[in-house]
Amino acid sequence: MGIKIQFAVDMVCQSCVDDVSRVLAGVDGVERFDVSLADQQAVVEGTARPSAVLRAIKESGRAAVVRGAGSSASGNIGAAVCILEDKSGPQGLARFVQVSDDLCYVDISISGIADGTHAIGIHECGDLSSVPESCGARWGPDGCGGMGDIAVQSGRGELAFETDRFKVWEVIGRSIVIAAQPAALAGVIARSAGLFENDKQVCACSGHTLWEESRLVGEGHRL
């Protein structure tokens, strides 16, 4: 099942468009894309992981953020995001996209933690006051909130899968906990924008532009 991702991309000229287009053409799983200088965005369709596409765009030298996500076939069914943090700040991100009535696509990427295999679970509560205890028991309609294990090598780990065990709207407000050492990563799952639902260039909460926020988060700042 394909997904469609809308990226805001910092571009100033046709050369920027050409660079981003060239990068997207080389990403495995990207089937179609449209890059617009006027809208400062790239819309990408296919089976490529959103985090992999975002990383490729950034490696071309362009600042970029995910602005919206949906299903290639069904449009906006539901989407959510979870920023995973430990005491030092943001260390990862999980994205959820409902790609059909039955299937939810999950894309998780983490960095800066110990190499090894770490268990990931959805927990009942979105309370991060005392992780992991405050997050409650593992949650799941089948009695098991485990989402498998993520393997970390050279400080980076990635995991993507489709599941029919839960839907996006069932996990919003709950938490994700990754059992890493010396401290667990955790975050609250929040609703995120669907395709073309967010055209803001400046965040009303922080006053930062999209590009400033992307840089600050990348540097480990809390916004």
Rank of each mutant, 00 (worst) to 15 (best):
124 E>G: 05
42 A>L: 01
219 E>G: 03
56 A>Y: 04
214 S>M: 00
171 V>Q: 07
172 I>N: 13
74 S>A: 09
221 H>V: 04
96 F>R: 09
51 S>R: 14
66 V>H: 07
7 F>M: 11
27 V>I: 05
31 E>H: 14
71 S>D: 02
174 R>H: 15
216 L>Y: 13
49 R>P: 03
187 G>T: 02
179 A>L: 06
158 E>F: 07
40 Q>N: 10
61 G>R: 09
44 V>G: 12
208 H>L: 10
44 V>W: 08
214 S>W: 03
90 P>I: 01
86 D>G: 09
73 A>I: 02
90 P>G: 04
223 L>V: 01
54 L>Y: 13
184 A>P: 11
118 H>P: 14
121 G>M: 10
40 Q>E: 09
60 S>D: 06
103 L>K: 15
143 G>F: 04
185 L>G: 08
112 G>R: 02
170 E>S: 06
147 M>I: 01
207 G>D: 01
26 G>Y: 00
70 G>T: 01
198 N>Y: 10
115 D>R: 12
75 G>W: 02
41 Q>E: 13
27 V>K: 05
47 T>A: 13
38 A>R: 13
169 W>H: 14
131 V>L: 03
117 T>I: 12
78 G>Y: 05
217 V>K: 15
175 S>Y: 06
102 D>A: 10
210 L>M: 03
186 A>V: 02
159 L>N: 15
192 S>C: 07
18 D>I: 05
204 A>N: 03
100 S>D: 06
104 C>W: 02
6 Q>P: 13
106 V>P: 15
161 F>C: 09
72 S>K: 08
171 V>H: 10
100 S>G: 13
23 V>S: 15
11 M>D: 07
86 D>E: 12
35 V>Q: 04
161 F>I: 04
10 D>Y: 10
89 G>N: 08
45 E>T: 07
95 R>G: 11
87 K>F: 03
203 C>L: 03
202 V>N: 09
119 A>I: 01
145 G>E: 00
163 T>D: 15
67 R>G: 11
133 E>N: 12
195 L>T: 02
211 W>P: 09
211 W>F: 11
64 A>D: 02
41 Q>R: 15
178 I>V: 14
